[in-house]
Structure formats: C-alpha cells, structure tokens
Amino acid sequence: MSFSNEQLERYSRHIILKEIGIKGQKKLSAASVLIIGAGGLGAPAALYLAAAGVGRIGIADADRVDLSNLQRQIIHGTNDLGKEKAESAAESMRAVNPETRVETHVCFVSAANIGALIAGYDFVLDGTDNFPAKFLINDACVLAKKPFSHAGIIRFRGQLMTYVPGAGPCYRCAFKEPPPPDAVPTCSQAGVVGAMAGVIGSLQAMEAVKYFTGAGELLTGALLTYDALAQEFRKIRLPRREACGVCGSNPTITAPFDYPGAVCEVAP
C-alpha cells in the first residue's frame, strides 16, 4: 500500500521525522489500539491517536457524558451531554480523521469481557478511574502478553508506566493490590486540574506511537511522575517483583478476576 498525496499531506509532519517516516506511518496505519475509558485520560489519547492515523481504535466506556466531565474530557462537548461517552468520543475522532476506523464498546470492563476485548487490539491504553479496573487491565494484559499503558491522575499530580511483555515490571509489581475503597482519594473526591488529564493522556498516546514506530525508549521499567505544582517530571526506576502475583516466578493469578466494588466510584 502506498499513501495518496492527501495522506502524505495529512501525515507530513510525521513523515518528515526520521524516527517515523513513511515506514513508521504505515505501521501506525496497520496498528490497533483499545482505549479503556473515554474520560480525562482517554480523551486526549483518543484524539491524538486518531489524528496520528492509527488504523483502528476501540473505545470502551459504559458511561454517559455528564456536565462535570467537560472541565477535562475535551473529546466531548456541551452538545454531547447525555450521550454515550464511547459514541460521543467516536464522533469527535471521526471528525478529526475519517481514515481511522473507530469501534465503540459501550460496556464496563470486567473479568468476563476483558479477554475478548483486548484480544482484538495490538496495544491497550488504560484510561480508567478506579483501582479494580486498573488491576483488571494489568492482569488481563500480562496474562494475554499484551502491551499496555497505565496512568493515573489526581489533583496536580499524574503518573504513567508502560508494560511490554518480557520487558520489565507490571503495575502489580509496584502496587500489589488495590487499596480498600475510599482509602485513597479519587478525582471525584479530591479534584484534578483538567490540563493534568491532557498532559498524562497525551503521554500515553506518545507511548503508543513510540511502541508502534519503534522510536526511542518506552516507559518500561520506569514510572514517570509529574508534579504540576513543582512543575517537575521524574522518571523513577521500577524493578520487577519476583513475588508478583501475576508476572512473578510463581504467579497465583492465572485468570483475570474482578475485585468487589469496581463501579463504586461513580459520583452520585
């Protein structure tokens, strides 16, 4: 397949880059990404990956667009209030780039559906808002040998890491078990600056682009943290945990499972 003049123009700023070029752009066209959560993190990630010409993007979310989302979830507009988030996100993505195939999955991820969901994609991007979901995505991706980007944000802080099978630790290596419900504040309780979602979600999109094109180094074996108040990024080395329940030498987790309270985070 060779690009039309229109495609060459659309992706010209990528193609000029030595690290991407025509070859890298073709890899993006052939790539597929599943974005779980069309919220703060998923919004910029979905827009940038669609704009980047990723061939196929799945977007999974069971929620509807709420007024309190619009402060940070820039893929949705005021006219989208009440719409399914996955559908609203897909409309914005198609408007940015009609060449990208967008698939909507109007569901929450659970142990029952996650295996089938991630199986259809090359890379997974965790844009969820709760720990049970984050651990579920980690376990399912580790077990299915699926690379994924993990991220979390709160107040003025954010962090992300990338898991690639065979290269470095998983999320569970560092964080072991979800904290009990309400033990650790979430965004709905503690607040978050909208632009924080933009920064960290965009970094997740960057990881996906680099994974597919092979450019540079990924955040494998590292947690990148961002403190907006100090305006400071730090890359913290993450070791593997030999005793990790899912990726360690004697794993106790052999199939994805649900922690109780997976959907308790929805604000009343």
Partner: peptide, 14 residues
C-alpha cells in the same frame, strides 16, 4: 514545503 520533501521521501522509500 514541506510536502515537496514528503513526496520525495515517499517516492524514495518505494
């Protein structure tokens, strides 16, 4: 510019 170079790069790649 930059489509001049982009098209040249695409042609060379093939």
């Amino acid at each position: 510019c930059p489509i001049t170079f982009v098209r040249a790069k695409a042609a060379l790649e093939e």
